[in-house]
Design a binder for these strands. Structure first.
Lengths: 247, 247
DNA sequence: GCAAAAGTGTTCGTACTACACCCATGG
DNA sequence: CCATGGGTGTAGTACGAACACTTTTGC
């Protein structure tokens, strides 16, 4: 079954050679999540096509010949939205649908990013704005297969929240414990017991209580907490595994 | 910061247009894992370059213009190794190193596959063979960044084994419980208590005991078990989550 | 003094861990 | 009868789940 044959050898050689022409373009797209107003948001930009009809789409674009994929994402984000994100990882490569872009075959490497969007809220009264946050539950119909990409990114975020301390990348540092708790509730779409959540979170030893008191909201003032990234890295090297799950 | 500007708009439009030329090729590569002789193996093929020096490499090749990525992997596997795998998923896209292929910039979408390699063992005496299983701990120096790809695939396999019932895709069906247990021990690289393992595995209700008795080995004959994929799918829809962890 | 959010402990049950002996067969 | 691998139960422990009242501030 695995036996070698001349025919197969030629085939192997052929498909590994560069004699065959290929007309596929490589793009990157980024799903940038932000958290503000007690909601999870996705950053979208507005585009115009030849058809002159404006679509909302994920920030992204074609990769340059001399540019790493990850650099292409960073460049696009910087050019299109002027943002630098806190967390960035590769999500999935979309290239099974040959016609996902009607102009040309495009394989898109999608990335997944997190940012603290608290200081970045866009004025809703500026109609000319072409970059905007959308609540993740109110995403319009987007260009290409971008809705699908967001769905996948959201699943990834939900999953990762439980086994990697990435929630902090959506919050200011220092942050309020209530913000963190709320973030988990909203993204995981379930209620979480405040006492158990705090107990578990603090038990890891990767969060430090500061002496800073926040008077931002009504009610009793709250202490601010710091996520200690360095401590987390250290513990991880020692075999520690972050995991937080709720019924 | 997110304010719209003409300059930015032009930039967005430009990078999303197809006026810019791109000279990047798109390839797929597959890390195929097999399990036999109580060891985890990876399938490699032998290639020749212009330099005429033969390298071992992952099965893979360039994607055709009219072909889904996943179909490209299946085609390459079929052409190069004549195999149909039990499990196949996208692993990661390698495209940060511009020079990973010295001939041309190539972005490679790597896949991760599992197969029951028990009936497929290659005769070691056939020197002309250009497809071969290598124990995962004895992989030679490969072409391109293929060693790195295998490392990542192995990490993925290790991780997935704990939260997805993919071990069965490396075994015959029906299988011996001792095989399953051994597979977990070897891939996770730790010892597992036999009694606890069996108890936990059976508690999910996705494995059925058959009346078939195996007399293959010395010692007391063993019952064969069946993994019930359908039952697993059903349970998953009902919110069941496979998870098996050991100290 | 009341509304609003912060802060805090205990009990109960479940699930993981550790651990050792007998059983069925082939040679 | 001996070697080889298959099959099984229990006791202790640790962790997750459920649950409600007090505290501090602004208005």
């Amino acid at each position: 079954m695995l036996r070698y044959s001349i025919k197969k050898y030629i085939c192997v050689h052929f498909t590994h050679s560069f004699f065959i022409m290929q007309n596929i373009k490589v793009a990157v797209d980024a799903v940038v999540f932000g958290y503000h107003q007690n909601q999870l948001h996705v950053l979208l930009i507005q585009q115009k096509f030849g058809s002159s009809q404006p679509y909302w789409a994920l920030p992204g674009g074609l990769v340059r010949d001399d540019e790493a994929l990850i650099d292409a994402v960073k460049r696009e984000l910087s050019e299109e939205t002027n943002l630098v994100v806190n967390y960035l990882e590769q999500l999935y490569t979309f290239g099974d649908d040959i016609n996902r872009d009607s102009r040309n075959r495009v394989v898109s490497v999608a990335y997944f990013a997190l940012i603290d969007s608290n200081g970045l809220e866009i004025k809703a009264d500026t109609d000319a704005e072409n970059v905007q946050w959308f609540p993740v539950k109110e995403i319009p119909h987007l260009a290409f297969d971008h809705n699908q990409i967001i769905d996948l990114a959201f699943l990834r975020l939900k999953a990762k929240l439980s086994y990697q301390p990435i929630g902090f990348d959506l919050l200011p540092n220092p942050f309020l414990f209530s913000e963190l708790e709320n973030l988990y509730c909203i993204i995981l779409e379930k209620e979480i017991d405040r006492r158990n959540f705090r107990k578990k979170m603090l038990s890891f030893g990767i969060i430090e209580e500061t002496e800073i008191i926040s008077h931002q909201k009504s009610g009793r003032p709250a202490k601010l907490f710091l996520f200690n990234q360095q401590k987390y890295s250290q513990l991880t090297q020692e075999g520690f595994h972050f995991e937080i799950k709720f019924a």
